[in-house]
Amino acid sequence: MTLLEIRDLNVNYGHIEAIRGISFSVEEGTITTLIGANGAGKTTTLKTISGLRKVHSGSVFFDGKDITNAKPYERVKMGLTQSPEGRRCFPGMTVMENLEMGALLRKDRRSAAYREDLERVFGLFPRLQERVKQAAGTMSGGEQQMLAMGRALMARPRLVLLDEPSMGLAPKLIRQIFSIVDEIKAQGTTVLLVEQNANQALKRSDVAHVLETGKIVRSGPGEKLAADPAVKAAYLGGDV
């Protein structure tokens, strides 16, 4: 079943056309990946899906509903969350408060289901449990990345957008983060992943798209794209 569908999307920053007519969809229960060079428009795509940027033209459907003009909080309520580029944890809040922010719109914060979700996040990221009282601003980059992902999962989303979760992390941690992405999928949450670490990302993607200056230039199953010589040459150079 198609969970997210992007139709002929155009997004501008003033006169800069960051996204130029892209269309793709994300099937429920899959990992879909966008790869592309710096400035290709990956973050812009995710921001637009979350409602942080207005579309110039085109539309976004989530779970069959047109959410092109929905407010960000309406999208969160429908089950669409994001772990943004650069982590963006609330630095003045503790780990626990950050996680609670992730569950902001949940009405069931006293329920067993909520505690279960918290346990699930702590299961994925045991580090966070050890540091529930620490201010997010004082944590390491890797820990903050875990927190940002955990926070995005606390809303119990149907689709989570992950924008470069491996950015700036040591190789060991990168592998850990990717296995957690697998785990998230295994637990039933659909993932739309943006990555520079194309090798790792493509390996586990059901579908992947290559973005170049605002356009999708190649699409296909992750394994297949990973084997594509052009993609290899352009994106799989010094990958881990």
Binding site: S50, G51, L52, P72, Y73, K77, R88, G92, M101, L104
Partner: peptide
Amino acid sequence: RAVAQDPEAASLMG
């Protein structure tokens, strides 16, 4: 506090 610290991230939380 969330909006004060990072309005965009706060929007992403709903």
